[in-house]
């Protein structure tokens, strides 16, 4: 068994991402340890989504290096496949497959990309539906579920790949206020299992509760990295102070 404590499972070094001549990431460096929960926040357009989308290579970075679980992400097919087997992602818009039942949404990945038998995939799906507390919805179509339920299905779909790392991109931003709680609860429970998590979210209560570290971004840069308590009570940078003040005044 390799030593899993104090080992960086995500290492980003001087990562640059451009769109045309616009710099979405201006040389970002960040290490995430195994089992660590990192919450990323910052103003709109600051590059939070770009950062976590580079981690599972939904966006290809232009320069700098990213290593996930010791594997260099160099754009080769092998590295892409391995990264996507090991890193789960939850999107703001859920992105469930609308033509497939909840169960089929969950079994597709395990069956097609992990090569599990249908039986095993179904058993796995039921286990994770139970975990996100909607075991009774397996046969429904996504559109028959509430937003909060859909997002929990999306979390279960990612977990069915049994990833080592979970990425969340504003998972509660598209939800009605009354269903945000149930999704956050699911995420807290996931954090308690020791999953390595990188979450983009503005849910500060959640961040306080689970984050080991806060990462504050602005204009394509990481401006501040701190433990949640100092970050929320006394942020060092002016930009973080401004951001938090505006966040709290709403």
């Amino acid at each position: 068994m390799p030593d899993t404590r104090n080992r960086a499972v995500i290492r980003m070094d001087e990562v640059v991402k451009t769109y045309g001549d616009f710099y979405a990431l201006k040389g970002v460096s960040l290490d995430v340890m195994a089992g660590e929960r990192v919450v990323v926040c910052g103003p709109s357009g600051s590059g939070k989504s770009t950062l976590i989308r580079c981690i599972n290579q939904l966006e290809k970075h232009d320069s700098g290096t990213i290593d996930v679980d010791g594997l260099r992400l160099d754009g080769t097919k092998a590295s892409l496949e391995s990264i996507r087997q090991n890193v789960g992602m939850v999107f703001q818009q859920f992105n469930l497959f609308p033509h497939l039942s909840v169960l089929d949404n969950l079994t597709l990945g395990p069956m097609r990309s992990r090569g599990l038998s249908r039986e095993k995939a179904v058993a796995l799906a039921h286990r994770y539906l139970e975990r996100v507390r909607i075991p009774e919805q397996a046969m429904k179509m996504p559109r028959q579920l509430s937003g909060g339920q859909q997002q929990r299905v999306a979390i279960a779909r990612a977990l069915c790949m049994e990833p080592r790392i979970m990425l969340f991109d504003e998972p509660t931003s598209a939800l009605d206020p009354e269903t945000i709680g149930e999704v956050l609860d699911t995420m807290v429970e996931l954090a308690e299992t020791g999953m390595t998590m990188v979450c983009v979210t503005h849910e500060m209560g959640f961040a306080r509760r689970v984050a080991d570290r806060m990462v504050f971004m602005d204009h394509g840069e990481i401006v501040e990295v701190a433990a949640p308590e100092p970050f929320f009570t006394a942020p060092e940078s002016n930009r973080a102070q401004d951001f938090l003040r505006r966040l709290l005044s709403h």
Partner: peptide, 20 residues
């Protein structure tokens, strides 16, 4: 988002087209 979700569960191009 449908492609991104497919990528995120490691589906190949063919499977993404065929199933999603």
């Amino acid at each position: 988002g449908q492609y991104e979700a497919s990528h995120s569960i490691a589906l190949s191009y063919t499977d993404t087209m065929r199933y999603v």
